[in-house]
Computed example of a mutant assay.
Amino acid sequence: MPFDAHDDVPDEALLVLFANGDSAAARVLTLRLTPRVMAHAYRLLGNRAEAEDVAQEAMLRLWKQARDWRQGEAKVTTWLYRVVANLCIDRQRRARGGSVALDAIPEPSDGRASAVEEMQEHARAEALQTALNDLPERQRQAVVLRHIEGLANPEIAGIMEITVEAVESLTSRGKRALSAALAGRQEELGYVDER
């Protein structure tokens, strides 16, 4: 199958095609999933280098799982989010004794923002990441999956292996904690009410 012919193929089918020797399917799946996996790991760890390591490890585990993948049991993205979360938790547990420092400046999305806008966006991203880092692991994971990744509560429940009610509780508590952590910084971060 030509490379472009895979664009509309679901993740699970691409994984099966890869397991059967289709290298174009692997390229499409890699290009489709790696940015999401990397972003998720970065949001959980707050460290770009560590997130890259986690993303690479998660994708390697996916390729190793390909031959044994059973379609219909789980979505590839659900499986990957769970693997990334577990790898991040393992890294954080090994690094206990201090908080994970922010290590890199996020790149601007379109390159056309002014220097002031870029600095403002960086300050906002850094403030959010710092506030996320202060949340308990499970709250941080639920908030990131729900409000940054945009997943639905049932899918989050599957990833975290908890009930939907537990997801709702974790995200609610996490949002309150984030609001409290960022409440005094609205003006500094450029969120001034324009009335």
Score class of each variant (00 low, 15 high):
1 M>Y: 09
3 F>Y: 15
4 D>F: 14
6 H>N: 02
7 D>N: 15
8 D>C: 06
10 P>T: 09
11 D>C: 09
11 D>N: 14
12 E>K: 02
14 L>R: 10
14 L>I: 13
15 L>K: 02
15 L>M: 04
18 F>I: 01
19 A>M: 11
21 G>N: 09
22 D>E: 15
28 V>Q: 06
30 T>M: 09
31 L>K: 11
32 R>S: 04
33 L>T: 09
33 L>Q: 11
34 T>E: 13
35 P>G: 06
37 V>H: 08
38 M>I: 06
40 H>V: 02
42 Y>Q: 08
43 R>I: 00
43 R>L: 00
44 L>W: 02
47 N>H: 14
48 R>S: 05
49 A>H: 13
52 E>A: 14
52 E>K: 14
53 D>C: 01
56 Q>I: 03
56 Q>E: 10
59 M>F: 11
61 R>T: 04
61 R>S: 07
67 R>S: 11
68 D>G: 07
70 R>I: 15
70 R>K: 15
73 E>V: 14
73 E>K: 13
73 E>N: 10
75 K>D: 15
76 V>K: 03
80 L>I: 02
80 L>G: 02
81 Y>E: 15
84 V>H: 03
85 A>Y: 12
85 A>C: 04
86 N>V: 04
88 C>V: 04
92 Q>D: 06
93 R>P: 00
94 R>D: 15
96 R>H: 06
98 G>P: 03
98 G>W: 12
99 S>P: 13
102 L>I: 11
105 I>E: 10
107 E>Q: 09
108 P>Q: 01
109 S>P: 08
109 S>M: 11
111 G>I: 01
111 G>C: 00
114 S>W: 07
114 S>D: 08
116 V>S: 10
116 V>H: 08
117 E>K: 01
117 E>D: 09
118 E>C: 11
118 E>D: 14
121 E>Y: 09
123 A>S: 03
125 A>P: 08
127 A>Y: 02
128 L>R: 00
129 Q>P: 00
129 Q>N: 03
130 T>Y: 00
131 A>S: 09
132 L>T: 02
135 L>T: 00
136 P>T: 00
136 P>D: 07
136 P>V: 01
139 Q>H: 05
141 Q>T: 12
141 Q>H: 07
142 A>G: 03
144 V>W: 01
146 R>V: 02
146 R>K: 14
146 R>Q: 08
147 H>C: 05
154 P>T: 11
155 E>D: 15
157 A>I: 01
162 I>R: 07
163 T>E: 01
163 T>R: 03
164 V>Y: 12
165 E>N: 11
166 A>E: 10
167 V>Y: 08
169 S>L: 04
169 S>P: 00
170 L>H: 12
175 K>P: 00
176 R>Q: 11
181 A>Y: 07
181 A>C: 04
182 L>C: 06
182 L>T: 06
183 A>Y: 05
185 R>A: 06
186 Q>L: 13
187 E>M: 02
189 L>E: 09
190 G>C: 05
194 E>R: 13
